[in-house]
Computed example of a mutant assay.
Amino acid sequence: MNKTPLTVRGAELLKAELQRLKSEDRPQVIAAIAEARAHGDLKENAEYHAAREQQGFIEGRIKELEAKLSNAQIIDVTSLNAGGKVVFGATVELMDLDSDTEVTYQIVGDDEADIKQGLISVNSPIARALIGKHEGDDIHFSAPGGEKHFEILAVHYR
Rank of each mutant, 00 (worst) to 15 (best):
I74E: 15
V87R: 00
L94E: 09
R158V: 13
K148A: 12
N45P: 01
L14F: 00
E66A: 11
R158N: 15
M95Q: 12
I152C: 10
S121N: 11
S142H: 08
D110M: 10
K63G: 09
E151F: 03
T91D: 09
I131C: 01
L94S: 13
G89P: 01
R61L: 10
M95D: 13
A11P: 04
V77C: 02
R26H: 09
Y157F: 12
G60F: 08
L65D: 09
I75M: 00
G132Y: 04
D41M: 00
G60Y: 07
G89Y: 01
I139P: 04
V92Y: 09
A90C: 06
V86H: 04
V86P: 02
A50M: 12
L65N: 10
D138L: 11
T104G: 07
N71E: 13
K43T: 12
E93M: 07
D114I: 02
G56W: 05
E44V: 06
R128P: 05
V86N: 05
D25G: 01
A127Q: 06
T4P: 00
L18W: 03
E151T: 15
G132T: 07
A36D: 03
V92F: 07
L42S: 06
A154H: 11
F141R: 12
E135V: 10
G136E: 06
F88E: 05
Y157L: 10
N45M: 04
T4E: 06
Q73L: 11
I75T: 03
H39K: 14
E53F: 14
A34I: 02
E35C: 05
D96G: 11
D111G: 07
D111L: 14
I33K: 03
A46H: 02
I120K: 03
A127P: 04
V77I: 13
I62T: 04
N123Q: 14
Y48F: 15
A31T: 04
R128N: 11
F88Y: 03
A67W: 03
A11R: 12
R9T: 07
E53W: 06
R158D: 15
L119T: 01
N71I: 06
A143G: 10
L153I: 13
A143L: 05
L130V: 08
G56H: 11
I30R: 09
G145C: 05
Y157I: 12
E102A: 14
Q117E: 10
D98K: 15
L119R: 07
I152H: 09
A143C: 06
H140S: 14
D76P: 00
A72C: 06
S23K: 13
S142L: 11
V87W: 01
L13F: 02
I107N: 08
G60H: 12
S121W: 05
E93S: 14
Q54V: 07
E151N: 12
E12Q: 14
F88V: 06
E66M: 14
N2Q: 08
H49S: 06
I58Q: 03
G109I: 01
E64S: 12
E147N: 09
D111Y: 08
E66G: 14
D98Y: 06
E12G: 03
R26Y: 15
L97S: 05
Y48M: 09
M1L: 11
K3D: 01
P27F: 12
V92E: 13
E35N: 11
H134Y: 13
K116Q: 14
G83R: 07
P27K: 13
V92G: 10
I33L: 05
R26E: 10
A50E: 14
I33G: 02
K15I: 04
L80H: 03
